[in-house]
Each structure stands twice: as structure tokens, then as C-alpha cells.
């Protein structure tokens, strides 16, 4: 990491740590929490979708797995949601193995379509399964039992710092993966899968590794969501629009980069909140219109995302389309 990048990260961390102390209004804090949670989801998605280039549009299934596992363990067995978070990550990783085994036989768009199907199937199963709350979902008891209870209703601050901590942890995992052997292999698989194989890289093994890490992190975000909202149902934790949101945060900021999903999540959440304020309660579904519009704009004008704008000023963007530098050279 360059000196400049380190300084930017340090500054961002300071701002994030001090923000809720400066901005005391609950609505601001709530928006900031949404940004952190969206960023964390985006980072989780980015490991598989950005670094390994395997675009999943069913990641809500993993997010939901985290939310449902911790909630069930908490309601039925009285287990601390913190342990539920770990269990949820494990269940989600296991689920990703089941999903990956057939889906990784497909490439490119076909993989993306298969993951949409997986997301929809999981949603349909939960909708029809009484044990999992069916379409009604679950309410979690609104009573504080200290840190291990993972319920805080007097102030939003604990959620803010937990969300920040989880984002920091996810970024740390991402950073460690990116600079490891696996990280190099994932980028190679994304660029030229056949060439990667010819150099001894097993596609299935490393795609699966990325998916296990990605789904486990997504599940941890799911547990945090459940504990913050104290209510989960298939619509809020398993929907395809949530899957798209995870992908969009990363794509908007810049796929395959550490900071991309964070930048994307901040901008995306700001746009969402603004449209919610503008359209009010009648605006249900406007977020989908916004997502659709953003996807078109990014695909047409800025495939490298927001970070790509800065990169192209300093030189050819790493994530920019391959033709761009060639044209400049010619």
C-alpha cells in the first residue's frame, strides 16, 4: 500500500471514529450506520465478485443465513447473538459450498443467473417453512442484556461502533486475502481463467475459497442487521434487490479494489436516503429505479467505478477496460 493510500485510510478511520460524536442527531447516525453496513456487505461481495470476477446476484442468501441462524439460536436456545454470528458465518460458508459446487460449473453471465436462482430458491423455502418463521419472520425481544445480549435501545452508538468494527474486520480479511497467494490466483482467474489453469491454479478450488470467505462475511453482516432491526423476514434479509445492492456498492465504487465498496456504499446510501426523503412513504420501489439507473450509468460511462475516476488521472486505471491504455499508446 502506498504512503498516500495509508494516509487516506487513516484519515477515513479517524473521521469514522469521531463522526457520531460530532453528528449527534439520531437520523444522521442511522444513515451512517446504514453506510457502514452497506459497505461491509459490499466488501464481502467484492472478494468473490470483484477480485475473483464471479458475479453473484444471490448473496442475500448468505446475508440471510447469518440473520436467521443467529436469530433462531437466540430465540430458541437463548444463545448470545455474538456466538450466533460465528455460527451463522459457519452455516453460510457451508451453504456456499453446496451452492458453489453446481454453480461454478457455469461461467460469466450463466453463473450470475444461477446465483439469482439460488437466492430466489432460498427465499421461497424460508417463505414456506414455518420453523423458519415463514413469510411473517421473527421479532427479537427488545430488552438490553449488556454487551453479550447484542441489543441496544437507548442509543444508536453501540450499533455504529459494532458496524464500524465489523467493516474494519472485513476490510482486514480482504486486505490479507488480496496480498496472499489466493489473492493473486483470484485476480488471475478473473483475467484469464485458462492461463491461470495452465499455471497450476485450480479454478474450482480458488473460486470456492473466495466464496466461502465472501459468504461468511456476508452472514456476519446479516447477524448485525437482525440485531439492529430486531426483526427479520424474507423480504428484508433474502430479497434479490438486497443481493443487487451488495453488488452495486462494490461495482459503483470500483470492483476488485479494497476501498471501492466503501466509497460505493457511502454514495449509494446517500442517494437512497435522498430519494426516500424526496418521495416519502409513497416511494416504495424508487430504490429499485435508482439501482437500475445507476447500473446503466456505470456500465456505459464508468466501468471502473468511482475510484477509477481518480486512478485515470494518475495513469491508466488498473481496473479500467484493457483497451483504454492501448488506445492512448496508439
Amino acid at each position: 500500500m502506498s504512503r498516500r493510500a495509508k494516509l487516506v485510510w487513516l484519515a477515513a478511520a479517524l473521521v469514522a471514529l469521531l463522526f457520531p460524536l460530532v453528528a449527534a442527531r439520531p437520523t444522521w447516525q442511522n444513515t451512517a450506520i446504514l453506510m457502514l453496513m452497506t459497505a461491509q456487505m459490499g466488501v464481502a461481495w467484492n472478494i468473490l465478485g470483484g477480485y475473483a470476477g464471479q458475479v453473484s446476484l444471490g448473496h442475500a442468501a448468505f446475508f440471510g443465513a447469518g440473520a436467521y441462524v443467529s436469530t433462531l439460536l437466540s430465540i430458541k436456545l437463548g444463545l448470545s447473538p455474538w456466538l450466533g454470528m460465528v455460527a451463522g458465518a459457519g452455516v453460510s460458508a457451508g451453504l456456499s459450498l453446496l451452492v458453489g459446487w453446481p454453480c461454478f460449473r457455469l461461467k460469466g453471465h450463466y453463473f450470475a443467473m444461477a446465483t439469482i436462482a439460488v437466492g430466489e430458491i432460498v427465499q421461497a423455502v424460508v417463505n414456506g417453512w414455518e420453523f423458519l418463521g415463514g413469510a411473517v419472520g421473527f421479532y427479537l425481544p427488545l430488552q438490553e442484556k449488556g454487551f453479550w445480549g447484542f441489543v441496544f435501545n437507548r442509543s444508536k452508538l453501540p450499533y455504529y461502533y459494532i458496524a464500524l468494527g465489523l467493516l474494519a474486520f472485513s476490510l482486514l480479511v480482504n486486505w490479507a486475502v488480496a496480498r496472499s497467494r489466493t489473492g493473486y490466483y483470484l485476480r488471475a482467474i478473473k483475467d484469464e481463467p485458462d492461463a491461470a489453469r495452465s499455471l497450476g491454479v485450480s479454478l474450482t478450488r480458488y473460486k470456492q475459497t473466495a466464496m466461502v470467505i465472501s459468504s461468511a462475511l456476508a452472514a456476519m453482516g446479516g447477524t448485525l442487521y437482525a440485531q439492529k432491526e430486531l426483526f427479520i423476514d424474507p423480504g428484508s434479509t433474502l430479497s434479490t434487490s438486497l443481493s443487487i445492492k451488495m453488488a452495486l456498492a462494490a461495482i459503483m465504487g470500483g470492483v476488485g479494489t479494497l476501498a471501492g465498496p466503501v466509497v460505493g456504499a457511502v454514495v449509494l446510501t446517500a442517494i437512497e436516503e435522498a430519494s426516500r426523503v424526496a418521495f416519502g412513504g409513497t416511494g416504495r420501489g424508487t430504490d429499485l429505479v435508482v439501482y437500475g439507473g445507476l447500473i446503466v450509468v456505470i456500465a456505459v460511462f464508468q466501468p471502473a467505478g468511482i475510484l477509477g475516476l481518480f486512478a485515470s488521472r494518475r495513469g491508466p486505471a488498473r481496473a479500467a477496460p484493457a483497451e483504454a491504455p492501448a488506445k492512448e499508446a496508439a
Binding site: 485476480r187 488471475a188 484469464e192 499455471l199 497450476g200
Partner: peptide, 19 residues
Amino acid sequence: VRIFKSMTVRENVMVAALL
């Protein structure tokens, strides 16, 4: 040619050396 275009020249070769 199927080089890894998003990587540097050195990183391309590192992918191989990691075997």
C-alpha cells in the same frame, strides 16, 4: 496471448512462481 492484463508484468510471473 493470454496475459493477466490487470496485473503488472511482475505479478503475472508471480502467479506462476506461486505454484
